[in-house]
């Protein structure tokens, strides 16, 4: 082996700015590029249609103003129902998520099989989109807000179940081990160590899922699961764009208020726990 020259020892030689990628990565990149170009056609991307559609968009937006207030009362009632669905669904969902998460978290689950089964249920619930749940519940319990509320409960379990479980797993194991060493029971340790330790994160997740529930409960009405979505669908179908504008504006206000209050509440609660 040749001695490295003292002026340029092997470790200090500059490499080229760019390394030639391996044949495999070049091939994979070419494959991806091809698939993406095909996907552009598959996704129906067309600049022509976009340009042709522009005047239509202009007309619709033009017709939206001024927003019509003639159906203000039923619309505001529907907004209230939407919020009530979201609130009830989230609260029940959060309550049900706690035992699910305890069964699913590595450090609180009674048995690996229980943990695996609960984890699978939670991920299944989460992967099925909320509109699919809504369609399922509309068929089973009928049209109306109850189907929507059930959807939000299930959706919240899928979301909170996972994040609560992660919060439980991240709790410092020290206090739990200390209480184990003196002979306390697992349920006590969950109540005094895991829950207080995970509480800040649970409050965050819970309030975030309320915001998420408000947004999704707006859409649920489109498939007949109660709330403001139905009003929006009807207005659009009857070409009452001015009414639709009023509804969209009302939704915006609702989402804004909920997000504003939930962030205020979050700060208050996080500073208060003891």
């Amino acid at each position: 082996m040749p001695e490295p020259s003292p002026i340029h020892p092997a470790s200090s030689v500059l490499r080229d700015r760019f390394q030639r990628p391996s044949w495999l990565s070049s091939g994979l990149f070419a494959l991806f590029l091809g698939f993406f170009l095909w996907s552009l056609a598959g996704a129906g991307m067309s600049l022509q249609s976009l340009i042709q559609g522009l005047p239509n968009m202009g007309t619709i937006v033009g017709e939206m103003f001024p927003p019509a207030t003639d159906r203000a009362q039923p619309i505001l009632e529907a907004i209230l129902v939407t919020f009530q669905m979201a609130l009830v669904g989230t609260v029940i969902g959060v309550i049900l998520s706690i035992p699910m998460a305890l069964l699913a978290a590595r450090n609180t689950s009674p048995h690996p099989i229980v943990r695996y089964v609960t984890r699978s249920i939670i991920s299944f619930v989460r992967t099925v989109p909320d509109l699919a749940w809504a369609l399922f519940f509309v068929v089973s319990v009928g049209l109306g807000p109850f189907a929507g509320t059930l959807t939000i409960i299930v959706d919240t379990i899928g979301f909170c179940g996972r994040f609560f479980a992660e919060a439980f797993e991240e709790v410092d194991p020290g206090p739990s081990e200390a209480l184990d060493s003196i002979g306390s029971r697992p349920l006590d340790r969950i109540a005094v160590v895991q829950i207080p330790g995970a509480l800040p994160s649970m409050i965050n997740t819970g309030l975030f899922s309320l915001e998420k529930a408000v947004r999704s409960s707006v859409v649920l009405g489109l498939v007949g699961a109660g709330g403001i979505g139905a009003e929006l669908a009807v207005s659009m179908e009857m070409f009452r764009y001015d009414q639709a504008a009023f509804i969209i504006f009302a939704i915006f206000i609702l989402v804004y208020i909920v997000e504003h209050f939930s962030s205020r509440l979050r700060e208050r609660l996080l500073n208060q726990i003891r």
Partner: peptide, 16 residues
């Protein structure tokens, strides 16, 4: 074990 007190290197209290 319930009459055996244990104090660890870290205090192991619930911080909140």
């Amino acid at each position: 074990r319930n009459r055996v007190g244990f104090v660890f290197q870290k205090h192991c209290l619930v911080p909140r």
